[in-house]
Amino acid sequence: MALTIDLSDQVALVTGGGRGVGRGITDRLRAAGATVAVAGRSVPDGLPGGVTFHAADVRDADAAAPLVASVLERHGRLDLLVNNAGGSPSVAAADASPRFSTRIIELNLLSALHLAHAARAALAEAGGSIVNVASLSGLRPSPGTAAYGAAKAGLVNLTQTLAMEWAPAMRVNAVSAGMVRTELFDEYYGGPEGAAAAEATVPMGRAATPAEVGDAVVFLASPLASYVTGANLAVHGGGEAIALHRVLGH
């Protein structure tokens, strides 16, 4: 019998699930049969059937419990929390204000902690799991996005800690994404030429698609990963070429 992933009995909450990487995660969870609730500050365009929207600013710690309650009221259960909301504009560390850095850390690290705490009881009851969307920026220096890189590094540690503290009631894993070709990819790298140059540094020769990150989330949420917890699954096409290696001809 062929292996399949069927999440038709699961309800998932995906923060920032209406666009970019989050939309890829939402679409792949729906393709696996899951019911999906997405959270964000504004209603995204064109949500597919079977997806509900729940307004919340996940940077606000006080929004976590009402958000989880809203999903439970609408769907009756919660099996999967995907802490995907995140990101940062490029700002040199010397130029970043304390308020800017605080907001970036709230979005990329503290929101995941607060939502995990708010969802813990429901996830434990369902025997569910958490997937935190981290970044390659948290695994190596992150010039231009220091607070973001530090927050994503912290998110990996948070994943490992919660996995240990909350087992066996639930599993907690992370996906560390590298470059992902979202709708803003070319703009971020200064246009098509800059984007192509950035993609050329990836051993696989291209950036990931949002759906490929979504597939990693689907796997970690599925019974195929029933003994996987505290893991950090790198979805980065082999990483990024290091300048020193190019000098050495590697």
Rank of each mutant, 00 (worst) to 15 (best):
A34W: 05
V156C: 11
S226M: 10
L81N: 02
A34S: 15
R41K: 09
A122I: 06
V58I: 12
V71C: 11
G249D: 06
T15G: 11
A124S: 15
L78F: 03
H250V: 15
G190K: 02
P98W: 03
I104T: 10
A153C: 08
L113T: 01
P168E: 12
I104D: 01
A167H: 14
A56N: 02
E199H: 07
L29R: 10
G46N: 14
G138L: 00
Y188M: 14
M164F: 12
R41S: 10
P192H: 03
I5P: 08
G154Y: 04
E106N: 02
V82N: 05
F53Q: 04
I242K: 13
D186S: 13
S97V: 09
A146H: 05
A208S: 12
A177M: 03
S226E: 10
D215S: 13
V217K: 03
V91N: 02
D45F: 08
F185V: 01
A134D: 09
G49T: 11
A34V: 05
T201Q: 15
V51D: 01
L244V: 10
H54Y: 05
A118M: 11
V202T: 05
E240C: 13
G190N: 03
A121T: 12
A64I: 02
P48G: 11
E165Y: 09
A56Y: 03
R181T: 01
G87H: 07
S111E: 03
A119K: 01
D186A: 11
L7H: 07
L3N: 12
A34I: 06
G138I: 00
E187R: 15
G178T: 06
G214P: 08
M1P: 13
A93N: 01
R77N: 09
G214C: 09
E73Q: 12
S70L: 02
G238Y: 09
A126T: 11
Q160A: 15
S142Y: 06
S137T: 02
A169S: 14
A211P: 07
V58R: 08
H117K: 13
G239R: 00
D186T: 08
A198L: 06
V213P: 04
G46A: 15
A55L: 00
L115F: 00
G214Q: 01
G191H: 00
Q10I: 09
V58L: 12
L248M: 14
G190E: 07
F185Q: 07
S97G: 15
G86V: 04
F219H: 12
L113M: 12
R30L: 13
V68L: 11
E187V: 13
L248F: 14
F185C: 09
H117T: 13
G24S: 11
P89Q: 10
A174Y: 00
A121R: 12
Q10D: 09
G86K: 02
L113E: 07
A65T: 11
G239C: 10
S70G: 14
V133Q: 02
R30N: 01
A56T: 02
V228E: 07
A121P: 03
V14P: 06
D27I: 01
S88G: 04
E183F: 05
A174P: 09
R74Q: 13
E183V: 08
V133P: 03
E125R: 14
G40V: 01
A150V: 11
